[in-house]
């Protein structure tokens, strides 16, 4: 029997019908057409499906779609404002921090949450926070640099 779920995605009201055993990831992708969130494993091991659920970083493949009822979900599609990229998005491009790009939405969502909690992380803190996101192309070097540079830029901007 399908469930009717009312939730909020990226600041907008959203509703969908889903199966009781359907994941939030599948609902985002297949019910709401938000395919920016990726499935790499379906078991919470790769972080490609990272979203923010009520201020908490989660793997959307490990959350039931029905659990989104009455809550708010933030996905990669909610980051840029119109044609204006966030500092993190910009720094990922400038540092060539992506090759194939399939892990990129998950990294950006995770890194944004890190910088919301800690505006001046060390390299080690960045590496441990992002340890739940797998990237097979870059060896992480340029990703870590992009996040550190974005943090610096955002701090300078905040103090300016």
């Amino acid at each position: 029997m399908a469930l009717h779920v009312k939730t909020n995605v990226n600041g907008d009201a959203a509703e969908f019908l889903c199966e009781p055993d359907e994941t939030l990831l599948d609902a985002l992708r297949d019910r709401l057409g938000l395919t920016g969130t990726k499935e790499g494993c379906g078991t919470g091991d790769c972080g490609a499906c990272s979203v923010i659920l009520d201020g908490r970083l989660v793997c959307s493949c490990l959350v039931l779609a029905a659990e989104a009822e009455g809550r708010s979900v933030r996905t990669i599609e909610g980051m840029a404002k119109g044609d204006e990229l966030t500092t993190l998005q910009r720094k990922f491009l400038e540092h060539a921090a992506l090759q194939c790009g399939v892990c990129t939405p998950g990294f950006l969502v995770a890194a944004e949450e890190l910088l919301r909690r800690n505006d001046n992380p060390t390299e080690e803190q960045v590496r441990y926070w992002l340890a739940g996101n797998l990237c097979r192309c870059t060896g992480y070097d340029k990703i870590v640099r992009a996040v550190l540079d974005a943090a610096k830029d955002m701090r300078e901007h905040a103090h300016a």
Binding site: L34, T35, G36, A80, F92, L93, A96, G101, P105
Partner: peptide, 21 residues
């Protein structure tokens, strides 16, 4: 030189379409 990649914005905004998309 090191210009930005042409498929970059699509990939940092989640709009790039991969196999399952």
């Amino acid at each position: 030189t090191r210009p930005l990649r042409p498929d970059g914005i699509e990939k940092v905004t989640g709009r790039a379409r991969f196999g399952a998309d």
